[in-house]
């Protein structure tokens, strides 16, 4: 019995996020697929690495937590970067345990792929023959990456269907914290300040950006945070929001008065 990388042969039509990626996988291409929000590195048609400006890289994930000192990271890059075997070097030099590196790298790969495969109108480019200096870790079939990316989109929308939470600065609400916040979400909540975005918080925590999105959507669903909506007033462009004059400071009171009046009129 061999471990399998969860491969399925049949791909439903909607699971193809990028026809170009699909074609590159079919022709077992090697190179870098550069999309609007990130890059996927392929080797023999499999995804071997992914990067996105929206997600912390494996260096940030490993060094923020103290799992690896930043000197250790830079030493590995200096020693093995040119040979494109940085991951291998980190393990062989005893700096990062093999299993931990695989878990961390796979997490970073799916994380960056989620953003790299986000819908875009910018055409993708593929540079044949390019490979990443991190080197081989644990290749993943293109189908798995596409299926997982779709599943993740659905997961986010099931938790709280507001995509602005993923990109806008996040602010705490006035809503009191009336139920215990799980420790991992608490660490995210502590960094919410009306300025930081999900990406900023992920960088600061050294946590996968997708995990941060999940935490933020859960916090939003609990009413504890909300995205800062882009201000539309004051600008000439865009629909102007009409501010209605405030009738009363307390809408509940107004409702009660109307209710009383209606009852008295009976």
């Amino acid at each position: 019995m061999r471990p399998t990388a969860t491969t399925r042969t049949v791909i439903p039509e909607q699971a193809v996020l990028s026809p170009m990626l699909q074609r590159l996988a079919a022709e077992r291409a090697t190179g870098a697929l550069m999309r609007d929000r990130g890059t996927l590195y392929l080797a023999d048609g499999q995804v071997v690495h992914a990067e996105s400006p929206a997600t912390p890289g494996i260096d940030v994930l490993l060094t923020t937590s103290g799992a690896l000192r930043s000197e250790g990271w830079w030493d590995a890059v200096a020693q093995a970067g040119a040979g494109q075997r940085v991951a291998r070097y980190l393990v062989d030099s005893g700096r990062v345990p093999g299993g931990a590196l695989e878990l961390c790298h796979l997490g970073a790969l799916y994380d960056a792929a989620f953003f790299a495969l986000a819908p875009t109108h910018t055409p993708a480019r593929f540079r044949y023959g390019v490979s990443h200096w991190i080197g081989p870790v644990r290749p993943v079939p293109v189908d798995s990456v596409q299926r997982e990316t779709l599943r993740r989109r659905e997961l986010l929308d099931r938790i709280w269907p507001d995509a602005l939470t993923d990109s806008a600065p996040i602010a705490p609400t006035a809503h009191p914290v009336d139920a215990p916040v799980p420790p991992r979400q608490r660490r995210v909540l502590d960094l919410v300040n009306g300025v930081r975005t999900a990406t900023d918080i992920a960088q600061e925590l050294g946590r996968s950006a997708f995990h941060t999105l999940v935490d933020l959507r859960r916090l939003a669903a609990a009413g504890l945070v909300e995205p800062v909506r882009p201000a539309s007033a004051g600008s000439a462009s865009g629909p102007v929001r009409i501010e209605l004059p405030e009738v009363t400071a307390d809408p509940d009171l107004a409702l009660l008065r109307r209710l009383r009046d209606a009852l008295e009129a009976l």
Partner: peptide, 22 residues
């Protein structure tokens, strides 16, 4: 081996109760 925040299977082996590891 599973990530519980996303529900992603990072590696699987053998059978799964419903025939679908993912």
């Amino acid at each position: 081996v599973v990530d519980w925040t996303s529900g992603l299977a990072l590696g699987t082996i053998g059978e799964s109760p419903n025939g679908d590891h993912e």
